[in-house]
Amino acid sequence: MLAQLVFYVFAAVLLLSAAMVISVRNPVHAVLFLILAFFNAAGLFLIAGAEFLAMLLVIVYVGAVAVLFLFVVMMLDIDFTQLREGLQRHAPIGICVGGVLFAELIMALSHWTMAPAGVSVPLQAAPGLTNTAALGTLIYTHYVLLFQACGLVLLVAMIGAIVLTLRQTGSGRRQNIEKQHARTPEETLVLVRVPLGENVLEQGGFLRPQTSYYDTAVPGSYGSTGQPAVEKEETGA
Protein backbone atom coordinates (compact mmCIF):
# COMPACT_ATOMS: atom_id res chain seq x y z
CA MET A 1 0.00 0.00 0.00
CA LEU A 2 2.64 2.44 1.10
CA ALA A 3 4.97 1.27 -1.66
CA GLN A 4 2.24 1.85 -4.22
CA LEU A 5 1.57 5.30 -2.91
CA VAL A 6 5.26 6.15 -3.07
CA PHE A 7 5.42 4.74 -6.57
CA TYR A 8 2.61 6.96 -7.75
CA VAL A 9 4.14 10.02 -6.12
CA PHE A 10 7.48 9.40 -7.80
CA ALA A 11 5.88 8.57 -11.11
CA ALA A 12 3.65 11.64 -11.05
CA VAL A 13 6.51 13.98 -10.18
CA LEU A 14 8.65 12.32 -12.83
CA LEU A 15 6.06 12.91 -15.53
CA LEU A 16 5.36 16.44 -14.38
CA SER A 17 8.98 17.44 -14.28
CA ALA A 18 9.59 15.80 -17.65
CA ALA A 19 6.78 17.89 -19.06
CA MET A 20 8.26 20.98 -17.43
CA VAL A 21 11.63 20.27 -19.05
CA ILE A 22 10.19 20.91 -22.46
CA SER A 23 7.72 23.61 -21.53
CA VAL A 24 9.54 26.07 -19.25
CA ARG A 25 11.01 29.14 -20.91
CA ASN A 26 14.23 29.39 -19.01
CA PRO A 27 16.72 26.73 -20.12
CA VAL A 28 18.39 26.68 -16.72
CA HIS A 29 15.06 25.84 -15.15
CA ALA A 30 14.60 23.17 -17.81
CA VAL A 31 17.87 21.52 -16.80
CA LEU A 32 16.91 21.71 -13.13
CA PHE A 33 13.63 20.00 -13.91
CA LEU A 34 15.55 17.39 -15.84
CA ILE A 35 17.57 16.75 -12.72
CA LEU A 36 14.37 16.42 -10.72
CA ALA A 37 13.15 13.92 -13.29
CA PHE A 38 16.37 11.91 -12.93
CA PHE A 39 15.89 11.89 -9.19
CA ASN A 40 12.41 10.53 -9.42
CA ALA A 41 13.50 7.91 -11.90
CA ALA A 42 16.14 6.88 -9.37
CA GLY A 43 13.38 6.71 -6.78
CA LEU A 44 11.39 4.39 -9.02
CA PHE A 45 14.44 2.16 -9.38
CA LEU A 46 14.75 2.07 -5.62
CA ILE A 47 11.15 0.95 -5.25
CA ALA A 48 11.74 -1.76 -7.82
CA GLY A 49 14.61 -3.01 -5.67
CA ALA A 50 17.33 -1.95 -8.10
CA GLU A 51 19.32 0.14 -5.64
CA PHE A 52 22.52 -0.11 -7.66
CA LEU A 53 20.90 1.34 -10.77
CA ALA A 54 19.28 4.05 -8.70
CA MET A 55 22.62 5.18 -7.27
CA LEU A 56 24.30 4.95 -10.63
CA LEU A 57 21.62 7.11 -12.18
CA VAL A 58 22.22 9.76 -9.57
CA ILE A 59 26.01 9.60 -9.73
CA VAL A 60 26.35 9.49 -13.50
CA TYR A 61 23.42 11.49 -14.78
CA VAL A 62 22.77 13.91 -11.97
CA GLY A 63 26.30 14.16 -10.63
CA ALA A 64 28.18 14.40 -13.89
CA VAL A 65 26.13 14.67 -17.07
CA ALA A 66 23.57 17.17 -15.83
CA VAL A 67 26.29 19.28 -14.22
CA LEU A 68 27.90 19.71 -17.61
CA PHE A 69 24.51 20.42 -19.15
CA LEU A 70 23.88 23.09 -16.59
CA PHE A 71 27.39 24.39 -17.06
CA VAL A 72 26.89 24.85 -20.78
CA VAL A 73 23.34 26.17 -20.57
CA MET A 74 24.37 28.77 -18.01
CA MET A 75 27.17 29.98 -20.24
CA LEU A 76 25.06 30.17 -23.38
CA ASP A 77 23.19 33.33 -24.05
CA ILE A 78 19.96 32.06 -25.49
CA ASP A 79 17.58 34.50 -27.11
CA PHE A 80 14.08 33.33 -26.37
CA THR A 81 12.20 35.64 -28.65
CA GLN A 82 14.22 34.36 -31.57
CA LEU A 83 13.51 30.79 -30.60
CA ARG A 84 9.80 31.42 -30.34
CA GLU A 85 9.63 33.06 -33.75
CA GLY A 86 10.48 29.80 -35.50
CA LEU A 87 8.17 27.93 -33.19
CA GLN A 88 5.13 29.91 -34.20
CA ARG A 89 5.85 29.58 -37.88
CA HIS A 90 6.38 25.85 -37.78
CA ALA A 91 3.86 25.02 -35.10
CA PRO A 92 1.01 23.94 -37.46
CA ILE A 93 3.23 21.48 -39.29
CA GLY A 94 4.65 20.18 -36.05
CA ILE A 95 1.19 19.73 -34.57
CA CYS A 96 0.02 17.86 -37.67
CA VAL A 97 3.00 15.48 -37.65
CA GLY A 98 2.75 15.01 -33.92
CA GLY A 99 -0.97 14.36 -34.16
CA VAL A 100 -0.52 11.70 -36.80
CA LEU A 101 2.24 10.01 -34.81
CA PHE A 102 0.16 10.16 -31.67
CA ALA A 103 -2.84 8.64 -33.41
CA GLU A 104 -0.64 5.85 -34.72
CA LEU A 105 0.71 5.22 -31.27
CA ILE A 106 -2.78 5.05 -29.81
CA MET A 107 -3.69 2.59 -32.53
CA ALA A 108 -0.63 0.46 -31.94
CA LEU A 109 -0.94 0.47 -28.19
CA SER A 110 -4.68 -0.11 -27.99
CA HIS A 111 -4.25 -3.41 -29.82
CA TRP A 112 -1.17 -4.30 -27.85
CA THR A 113 -0.53 -7.96 -27.31
CA MET A 114 2.51 -9.84 -26.19
CA ALA A 115 3.89 -12.99 -27.65
CA PRO A 116 2.74 -16.00 -25.61
CA ALA A 117 6.37 -16.85 -24.97
CA GLY A 118 7.12 -13.29 -23.94
CA VAL A 119 4.39 -13.04 -21.32
CA SER A 120 6.14 -15.47 -19.03
CA VAL A 121 9.55 -13.88 -19.28
CA PRO A 122 11.54 -15.36 -16.42
CA LEU A 123 12.53 -12.58 -14.07
CA GLN A 124 13.53 -14.39 -10.93
CA ALA A 125 15.97 -12.75 -8.58
CA ALA A 126 19.40 -14.28 -8.38
CA PRO A 127 19.41 -16.16 -5.08
CA GLY A 128 21.80 -14.96 -2.41
CA LEU A 129 23.27 -12.12 -4.45
CA THR A 130 22.93 -8.41 -4.01
CA ASN A 131 21.83 -6.89 -7.25
CA THR A 132 25.20 -5.20 -7.65
CA ALA A 133 26.90 -8.57 -7.63
CA ALA A 134 24.29 -10.12 -9.90
CA LEU A 135 24.64 -7.30 -12.42
CA GLY A 136 28.42 -7.51 -12.33
CA THR A 137 28.38 -11.24 -12.89
CA LEU A 138 26.24 -10.83 -15.98
CA ILE A 139 28.03 -7.85 -17.44
CA TYR A 140 31.46 -9.36 -17.13
CA THR A 141 30.57 -12.78 -18.48
CA HIS A 142 27.68 -13.00 -20.91
CA TYR A 143 27.64 -9.43 -22.02
CA VAL A 144 31.33 -8.69 -21.80
CA LEU A 145 31.62 -8.07 -25.53
CA LEU A 146 28.79 -5.56 -25.52
CA PHE A 147 30.16 -3.96 -22.38
CA GLN A 148 33.57 -3.50 -23.93
CA ALA A 149 32.05 -2.28 -27.18
CA CYS A 150 30.18 0.36 -25.18
CA GLY A 151 33.54 1.31 -23.70
CA LEU A 152 34.86 1.75 -27.23
CA VAL A 153 31.90 3.99 -28.04
CA LEU A 154 32.86 6.23 -25.15
CA LEU A 155 36.51 6.18 -26.18
CA VAL A 156 35.54 7.25 -29.68
CA ALA A 157 33.45 10.07 -28.26
CA MET A 158 36.44 11.21 -26.23
CA ILE A 159 38.78 11.06 -29.22
CA GLY A 160 36.21 13.04 -31.15
CA ALA A 161 35.95 15.74 -28.53
CA ILE A 162 39.72 16.14 -28.52
CA VAL A 163 40.20 15.99 -32.28
CA LEU A 164 37.46 18.50 -32.98
CA THR A 165 38.24 21.04 -30.28
CA LEU A 166 41.87 20.88 -29.16
CA ARG A 167 43.93 23.53 -30.86
CA GLN A 168 47.63 23.64 -30.22
CA THR A 169 47.95 27.39 -30.01
CA GLY A 170 50.81 29.16 -28.40
CA SER A 171 48.63 31.17 -26.06
CA GLY A 172 48.66 28.82 -23.11
CA ARG A 173 51.10 29.58 -20.32
CA ARG A 174 52.00 26.04 -19.50
CA GLN A 175 54.95 25.30 -17.32
CA ASN A 176 57.24 22.39 -16.91
CA ILE A 177 56.38 21.66 -13.31
CA GLU A 178 59.41 19.47 -12.61
CA LYS A 179 61.81 22.14 -13.82
CA GLN A 180 59.99 24.80 -11.90
CA HIS A 181 60.11 22.79 -8.70
CA ALA A 182 63.77 22.01 -9.21
CA ARG A 183 64.68 25.67 -8.92
CA THR A 184 66.65 26.35 -5.78
CA PRO A 185 66.91 29.55 -3.76
CA GLU A 186 70.47 29.98 -5.02
CA GLU A 187 69.21 30.31 -8.57
CA THR A 188 66.45 32.72 -7.81
CA LEU A 189 67.41 34.66 -4.73
CA VAL A 190 70.34 36.88 -3.98
CA LEU A 191 70.77 39.18 -1.04
CA VAL A 192 72.30 42.53 -1.93
CA ARG A 193 73.33 45.25 0.40
CA VAL A 194 71.88 48.43 -1.08
CA PRO A 195 73.54 51.65 0.07
CA LEU A 196 71.19 54.10 1.70
CA GLY A 197 70.05 57.07 -0.35
CA GLU A 198 71.28 55.69 -3.64
CA ASN A 199 69.07 55.31 -6.70
CA VAL A 200 68.64 51.66 -7.58
CA LEU A 201 68.82 52.43 -11.28
CA GLU A 202 72.20 54.05 -10.81
CA GLN A 203 73.34 50.94 -9.03
CA GLY A 204 72.79 48.97 -12.23
CA GLY A 205 69.08 48.39 -12.45
CA PHE A 206 66.75 45.81 -11.01
CA LEU A 207 67.93 42.31 -10.41
CA ARG A 208 66.19 39.50 -12.17
CA PRO A 209 66.26 35.83 -11.30
CA GLN A 210 68.87 33.98 -13.28
CA THR A 211 66.39 31.34 -14.34
CA SER A 212 63.12 32.88 -15.30
CA TYR A 213 59.71 31.88 -16.52
CA TYR A 214 61.18 31.35 -19.97
CA ASP A 215 63.31 28.51 -18.76
CA THR A 216 60.46 26.61 -17.20
CA ALA A 217 57.88 27.25 -19.92
CA VAL A 218 56.76 24.23 -21.91
CA PRO A 219 58.07 24.46 -25.48
CA GLY A 220 55.35 25.72 -27.77
CA SER A 221 53.47 27.63 -25.12
CA TYR A 222 53.24 31.37 -24.96
CA GLY A 223 56.46 33.10 -24.15
CA SER A 224 58.68 30.07 -24.38
CA THR A 225 60.17 31.18 -27.67
CA GLY A 226 60.60 34.84 -26.85
CA GLN A 227 63.93 35.87 -25.44
CA PRO A 228 63.74 37.20 -21.92
CA ALA A 229 63.65 40.94 -22.32
CA VAL A 230 65.46 41.52 -19.06
CA GLU A 231 68.76 39.87 -19.82
CA LYS A 232 70.77 42.98 -20.31
CA GLU A 233 69.63 44.47 -17.05
CA GLU A 234 70.82 41.36 -15.30
CA THR A 235 74.43 42.08 -16.09
CA GLY A 236 74.19 45.33 -14.21
CA ALA A 237 74.25 43.54 -10.89
Binding site: A108, M114, A115, A117, G118, V119, V121
Partner: peptide, 9 residues
Protein backbone atom coordinates in the same frame (compact mmCIF):
# COMPACT_ATOMS: atom_id res chain seq x y z
CA UNK B 1 11.64 -1.28 -27.69
CA UNK B 2 8.31 -2.02 -29.40
CA UNK B 3 9.64 -5.31 -30.74
CA UNK B 4 10.99 -6.17 -27.30
CA UNK B 5 7.69 -5.21 -25.76
CA UNK B 6 6.00 -7.70 -28.00
CA UNK B 7 8.38 -10.61 -27.83
CA UNK B 8 9.96 -10.12 -24.41
CA UNK B 9 13.39 -10.92 -25.77
Amino acid sequence: SLVYGYAGT
